[in-house]
């Protein structure tokens, strides 16, 4: 794809997506599906800033989603306008990330990943037990939801904002610093990148975006509980979506989110799949296959396919193959 096509294609897709509710204002199921893809896409994109760009795999990111969801649920109950609660939830999640980031980033690689399982679980337990604020296990119910079309545009705006932010990050100096942290933290340190600060900033951005996504989730679901938002299964889906789509890329998390949403819907519609909870196997097998065969995810598979289709001059081949390293 040429450079201008790379800019034009997303703009065309965005324009088409903006037109969907105008063309089909009553296709509520379809709009709902799109809404979910935007929501999950935002969540996966947020995780990707830390897990993909910076290489810090977190199994506890549900904590930030939960904080955002509860912020929206509780603040709307206190009379705040809905849209104002989103940045508030994002800010609270970012604040929490500042609390846990510096100690957690003293750990590297798998140790960090394991500590994050603990962070997620601890935040769930706190949400469960701090009943005076969170209502405990029974959760919090919201009073009213905006119309389906309004929800669609809200989620679209949030998702587009998240994707634009990550595209900007990836091309910026900060993005290169994150890439350096991912590929070799010691070398990055010698080159003058303060790795702890870079990781903390990536976490902060990731947490803020997830906090906002949590608010969107609460607006749609009208009910938040510790298990549905802070639960480990939320953290799991946050890991799965970007990896399936293509970790560390801009559009990979969106692709992963679309597949995730589609599979979830299939599961609800298909009693055979639902009876045996086959989604777990599908995601588990996809994860294993991607890790073993194509670490760049489905976008990597796509690249290979288009590479096969586009015949290259044979002379250029050896140079190309040494230039592109896998993973």
């Amino acid at each position: 794809m040429s450079k201008s096509a790379r800019l034009i294609a997303p703009a065309v897709v965005a324009a088409l997506l903006l037109a969907v509710p105008i063309a089909l204002p009553h296709a509520e199921y379809l709009l709902d599906i799109f809404f979910l893809v935007f929501l999950y896409g935002t969540m996966a994109t947020s995780w990707n800033v830390l897990g993909g760009f910076t290489g810090q795999v977190s199994f506890g990111h549900a904590a930030f989603l939960g904080i955002g969801a509860y912020a929206t649920a509780l603040l709307t109950a206190a009379g705040w306008p809905l849209l104002a609660t989103f940045p508030a939830g994002g800010a609270l999640a970012a604040l929490f990330s500042l609390l846990i980031g510096p100690p957690a980033f003293r750990l590297r690689g798998p140790y960090f990943a394991i500590a994050t399982i603990g962070i997620g679980e601890a935040s769930r337990l706190i949400a469960l037990n701090w009943s005076s604020l969170t209502g405990g296990a029974s959760g919090v119910t919201l009073n009213s939801a905006p119309s389906v079309v309004a929800q669609y545009y809200t989620a679209f705006a949030v998702c587009a904002g998240a994707v634009a932010a990550t595209a900007w990050i990836k091309a910026s100096r900060f993005g290169y610093a994150l890439a350096a942290v991912r590929s070799d933290p010691d070398a990055a340190e010698t080159l003058g990148v303060d790795t702890t600060i870079a990781k903390t900033q990536a976490l902060l951005i990731s947490a803020f975006m997830l906090g906002v996504a949590g608010g969107v989730y609460a607006m749609h679901n009208l009910y938040v509980s510790p298990d549905s938002t802070f639960g480990f299964s939320t953290s799991i889906s946050l890991v799965i979506m970007p990896i399936i789509g293509g970790i560390g890329t801009i559009f990979g998390p969106l692709l992963g989110a679309a597949i995730f949403t589609g599979l979830r819907e299939q599961l609800e519609a298909n009693p055979f799949l639902a009876k045996y909870s086959l989604d777990l196997s599908v995601f588990g097998l996809l994860l294993c296959a991607i890790v073993l065969f194509e670490p760049r995810g489905l976008l990597g598979v796509f690249d290979r396919l288009t590479g096969l289709l586009r015949r290259k001059p044979p002379v250029a081949r050896p140079l190309e193959s040494t230039g592109s390293t896998r993973g």
Binding site: G55, V57, P110, V239, I243, Y276, L280, F283, L286, L287
Partner: peptide
């Protein structure tokens, strides 16, 4: 490979076992 790769692989195995 990097340690995180085996972690993700075994995470996938865990999901399959659960299923």
């Amino acid at each position: 490979q990097e340690p995180i790769v085996s972690l993700l692989l075994l995470f996938g195995v865990w999901l399959i076992l659960q299923n």
